[in-house]
């Protein structure tokens, strides 16, 4: 999101993909425990981390996101038994390609958050938002044709 004209404060735009069974529930728990994290983080619910196509992440950067994070069940705990393993490998590949493209490492992250880890979810999002905010705006992949 652009720099706030009045305060000059940079508000990053962060997309979080959360699997329905663990991380989305973890985010709900963070909410019901009233653990705050920046409003810059917007969550998209997917059935499983393996549903996250690397194209979705690229799309986010193309549309001006400053950071993208994917959360899933802990390895071995996937609701669909093996989905997060596929996701983990895909993201490893994607992240090395993003680095090659000049997207700083800190702008992408994978984190395993269980349904019981509301606190971990909030801490993760706070840290991630802080890292992304420090990196500033991400223009590298932004497609100007997508601007309204």
């Amino acid at each position: 999101m652009p720099i706030n004209a009045e305060s000059g404060e940079f508000k990053p735009m962060i997309v979080a993909f959360c699997c329905n069974w663990c991380s989305y529930a973890g985010a709900d728990l963070a909410g019901s425990s009233r653990l705050s994290y920046p409003a810059d983080v917007k969550i998209i619910r997917v059935p499983c981390s393996c549903r996250v196509n690397p194209l979705f992440m690229l799309r986010a950067f193309q549309r001006g996101a400053d950071g993208v994070i994917m959360c899933g069940c802990h390895p071995g705990d996937c609701h669909y038994t093996s989905g997060n393993y596929f996701a983990r490998r895909r993201m490893a590949l994607l992240f090395s390609m993003l680095e090659y493209l000049g997207i700083e490492k800190g702008r992408v992250r994978v984190e395993w958050v269980s349904a019981a880890e509301g606190q971990k979810f909030a801490i993760t999002m706070n840290q991630f938002a802080e890292t992304v905010a420090a990196l500033g705006e991400c223009k590298r992949l932004e497609d100007l044709r997508c601007q309204p």
């Binding site: 997309v15 549903r51 996250v52 196509n53 690397p54 986010a60 996101a65 669909y80």
Partner: peptide, 30 residues
């Protein structure tokens, strides 16, 4: 789960209720 949808090299597989276009529309809206 959608594992097949991401694996499919030609984009033939899609998940009802969580289609590629839908998730991208959410990304765009955010």
């Amino acid at each position: 789960c959608g594992a097949c949808t991401v694996t499919c090299p030609s984009g033939a597989m899609d998940l009802k209720g969580f289609t590629n276009l839908q998730i991208m529309a959410e990304v765009d809206a955010i």
